[in-house]
């Protein structure tokens, strides 16, 4: 039952598209707690609408939180130490 509540970072693509030009689910994140690196699409996302808690798939620590309400967004940064984004050079 508990396993059904967790989604993955693919679920963030929509809200990311409202805030960022680059597609961030393919961006490589590094967890500051355990050092694991991987695409944000592979994070564990606990949907707590209107919030989402994004956790490291390795150690489970909170990487990010996202809360959205009618045009206001709060991005909480916890253990997401670094994000590598490859986009077109401008």
């Amino acid at each position: 039952m508990d396993a059904e509540l967790v989604l993955d970072g693919n679920a963030l693509a929509g809200v990311f598209s409202e805030l960022f030009l680059q597609e961030l689910t393919v961006a490589q994140g590094t967890c500051g707690a355990c050092g694991l690196t991987g695409p944000l699409a592979e994070t564990r996302v606990y949907a707590y609408a209107p919030g989402a808690v994004v956790r490291c798939p390795g150690c489970g620590d909170v990487l990010l939180t996202i809360v959205k309400e009618e045009g206001r967004y709060w991005l909480g940064f916890d253990r997401l130490r670094c994000l590598e984004i490859r986009g077109d050079a401008r």
Partner: peptide, 11 residues
């Protein structure tokens, strides 16, 4: 690693 695609905001 896949390249992020730059595009306009989705409407």
């Amino acid at each position: 690693m896949a390249r992020a695609a730059v595009r306009g905001r989705l409407t």
